[in-house]
Design a protein around this nucleic acid. Structure first.
Lengths: 354, 354
DNA sequence: TTGTAGGCGTTATCAA
DNA sequence: TTGATAACGCCTACAA
């Protein structure tokens, strides 16, 4: 009886995950032939191949990724480093990236860097252990020290933040200038002269870039960039609300608030609602990202669109290029564009407060 | 020179991923001893253990998860099935679950089920290939056929939707009744008699549960549940907006709208803003989930909180239990509570429309 | 073109 | 308690 139980158990376990051996036996070939067929690299007789495919079909065989990775050193896994998943910008980006990667039969490991330094380090370690074949760094801030391990492994590294000291690293530039120019033009055309800016933390490269691009844009329209009309937030609702409160308290109030991301813009909207400051009549608000929510804010948010799909496909293509894959003709440029989406949160400034 | 280069390279590659062998050599013990030390199960002499730890430290050794999984059949990986990442409820849940799992040294594979049937199936296949040690099903709808593979493997399965035909399956119940009773009481106390409900798609188990719980609650307060004051949405902003538009067009308008999730409530808020229906003066709105955004809606959303951390820890504990791990005393009950969070979107109904 | 053999890094089994 | 040895499932020389 005991033996039977054991047999049943081992039977079940065997029946669960098929191996090359089983396929090989069923197809009456050797394991290596099966391997050749599934990998499609070496040449194998057509009749045999057919038999093998039939056996694979019948058994529902799928190669064990662990074993495959172990022996080949190639994991068909990519890493994706983001700031934090709870910023709605990122789930959309993650989805795009996973879709593209998945279509090319890559798995994606997603890790965030904002919350916990130790966990971020652990994540990088896991990426290395898993022998990821490329990593996309889509965070706001420079992650240089964190990524040293990846650099040391010479793992293809694509980043919106910086290039790394690897020949296998590419920088994806985001063309903030274009979007901010459109924003400035839009606001100036509406009659705004006092435009405030809510930045991210100014220790982060991308936050500095955004503020600089904004600054340049309004200057190019003859407006001045005033430090007091600047507020350093942290990309959260709360920061946006704080920023709006700060601007409202100023002796000389701005008439428009441009935010470095949508979350802060919506936070600002919320505070303005609370203080009964009408948007856009008494205050215009502009965001950046164009997350789905922007359209459903009340009022709907005018914002600068930064395409998640563009970002994702650029990153993926760049990684493939770095891995030495030749892309089928259409290579995305390493510049992601931005443009203004005008909705309801911007309008003519009211005269009363001039 | 060439030899030197080669040496450097192999050095770098070696230096990258350490193996048990290297640790063993450095500590002057055998590989198996190193293994015993890292796994801490068998007994090993204290002096040796110290030497091994020192070597591990010096080399920065970390066991290769692939190899470990291959030989042990245990992957230290968990699966997490969600509806879609772009619903803000889920990133918060994912984070909680990953935190708990990570603390217990488990990796998490996250997959969504809404978008694409094929990709969902592929994801399940990957879970099986990766030999996940448990799966948490946190979707709205029944995923039974999809999960057959997991059931067949006898993989621990925890679900908020249903139990499966495995002895290794647990159902986590969500106590909607409690929250909806509080909601009904709150609204009735404010003077509401005509309360509408925006459900999810009524083919989904959890959506049906939510509607039933709502229905019972208002009946228990002597109100009638009317089909025409019901709208079937799909958990999106858009659906919420459509629902609100529908209710507004009714000859006999409800005075309050309760939504099966926050996204729809915020969509409703948005449409009411557009139609210049004041909230809560002319219409009260209630959500469900209490996503972070709820607090920053304008007006801030009154909503029923469904704790992501509770859900995550319940799911994780249940999986551990199914895996046969004994939890340190505190075992979460398999019932996740809900409660009402009153903010600004609910108030007395206006008299004008009675 | 095919099969055999060896090894990827780890753990489990067995002697010692 | 420790160390050699044999797997785990796969791929890739190498030989046939």
């Amino acid at each position: 009886l005991k033996a039977t139980t054991h047999n049943l158990q081992s039977l079940r376990i065997q029946s669960s995950a098929k191996t090359v051996q089983q396929v090989a036996k069923l197809a009456a070939v050797s394991a290596s032939t099966v391997s050749r067929v599934t990998n499609g690299n070496a040449s194998v007789d057509e009749t045999l191949a057919k038999r093998v495919w039939a056996a694979i079909e019948e058994l529902g065989y799928a190669p064990n990724p662990q074993a495959r990775a172990l022996v080949s050193g190639r994991s068909r896994t990519l890493g994706l480093l983001i700031s934090e998943l709870t910023n709605p910008f990122y789930p959309e980006l993650v989805q795009s990236f996973e879709n593209i990667a998945g279509a090319h039969d890559f798995e994606v490991m997603v890790g965030s860097t904002i919350s916990n330094k130790d966990r971020a380090n652990l994540f990088i370690t896991r990426l290395i252990q898993r022998r990821v074949e490329g990593v996309a760094v889509m965070t706001f801030r420079s992650e240089s020290p964190l990524l040293d391990g990846l650099v040391a492994q010479n793992i293809p590294l694509v980043s919106v933040v910086e290039t790394f000291a690897t020949p296998r690293s590419r920088f994806i530039e985001i063309d903030y200038a274009k979007g901010f120019n459109q924003t400035a033009q839009h606001l100036v055309a509406l009659g705004h002269k006092k435009i405030a800016f809510v930045s991210g933390q100014m220790i982060h490269v991308n936050d500095i870039r955004r503020r600089d691009a904004f600054c340049q844009s309004i200057r190019s329209f003859g407006l001045q960039f005033r430090e007091e009309w600047t507020f350093a937030g942290d990309h959260s609702f709360e920061a946006g609300a704080r920023a709006a409160a700060y601007f409202l308290g100023l002796a000389e109030r701005p008439t428009a608030i441009v935010c470095a991301n949508d979350l802060m813009a919506i936070g600002a909207l919320r505070l303005l609602y609370e203080k009964q400051v009408k948007v856009p009549k008494q205050m215009s608000v502009v965001g950046l990202d164009d997350i789905h929510l922007a359209e459903f804010a009340a009022p709907a948010l005018t914002t600068m669109r930064l395409s998640r799909t563009d970002l994702a496909s650029n990153a993926f293509d760049a990684i493939q290029l770095l891995r030495g894959e030749t892309l089928g003709g259409k290579i995305n440029p390493l510049l992601v564009s931005t443009f203004l989406v005008v909705r309801e949160s911007t309008g003519h400034p009211s005269k009363e407060r001039r």
